[in-house]
Design a protein around this nucleic acid. Structure first.
Length: 210
DNA sequence: TTGGTCAACGTGTTCC
DNA sequence: GGAACACGTTGACCAA
């Protein structure tokens, strides 16, 4: 996208690199983006019990979560709510978010092997990793679109201002021309000043002196 | 209560 | 034709 704003000095449009620090969901930013990660309990209802990367406290919670998930899963299989199981909200842990963000920063798409490996590492299902990347790309694109929108608004403003100035200048020139061509004045020509790039009038008498 | 966030889903499109 | 993706939407959850 190439846009040249007024005077070509430009407001240069540098569109955000997805995954940049300004991103609301990036880690670490407690409470960043208003999602309330700092205060809310990191409850992951779909998560498999942890080992390895995640600390003991989280591990205990996730063991509990797994039981809930299994129960939920069983309930789902039993087709309560007319076969439509209640949808529960998964919240990724800080660690999971961090690793996903890191991965996204390196690459915005994953091949099946990378996806599987990441899912294993995060103790998530590959589908969850896949969905996370899809949503992350969407958020990234949205952010970029918002930035472009802001930029275009500013550019529109500067063009409007430039237009206003040019119109005013045209009015001045018209007035000047009327004055120059009026009776009792010498015929003149319009010339462009190379320094200020404004049009000035020169009388024929002036020119003859040169 | 309301608005924002985000995981998850359904569907259409693209690519191989 | 199927996998991967984009896009729009839903619903759970949270803070103000």
């Amino acid at each position: 996208m190439e846009i040249m704003p007024e005077n070509s000095t430009c407001l240069e449009l540098t569109i955000s690199i997805p995954g940049s620090s300004s991103n609301s969901s990036s880690f670490p930013s407690p409470g960043g983006g208003g999602c309330g990660y700092n205060t809310m309990r990191e409850l992951d209802i779909n998560q498999v019990p942890s080992s390895g990367n995640i600390n003991e406290e989280e591990s205990m919670e996730e063991d509990q979560d797994q039981e809930e998930e299994e129960e939920s899963s069983n309930n789902n299989n039993n087709n309560n709510n007319n076969g439509v199981p209640p949808r529960k909200k998964l919240r990724l842990t800080k660690q999971q978010s961090f690793l996903l963000e890191e991965s996204f920063r390196q690459n915005h798409t994953l091949n099946p092997k990378e996806k599987e490996a990441l899912a294993m590492q995060l103790k998530l299902r590959t589908r969850q990793v896949e969905v996370w990347f899809q949503n992350r790309r969407a958020r990234s694109k949205l952010k970029q679109t918002e930035m472009e929108c802001e930029y275009l608004k500013r550019w529109f403003g500067s063009l409007t201002e430039q237009n206003r100035r040019l119109k005013k200048e045209v009015e001045e020139l018209r007035a000047m021309k009327v004055g120059v061509l009026s009776p009792h004045t010498c015929p003149s020509t319009l010339t462009m000043c190379p320094h200020c790039e404004r049009v000035t009038t020169t009388t024929i008498r002036d020119e003859s002196r040169i």
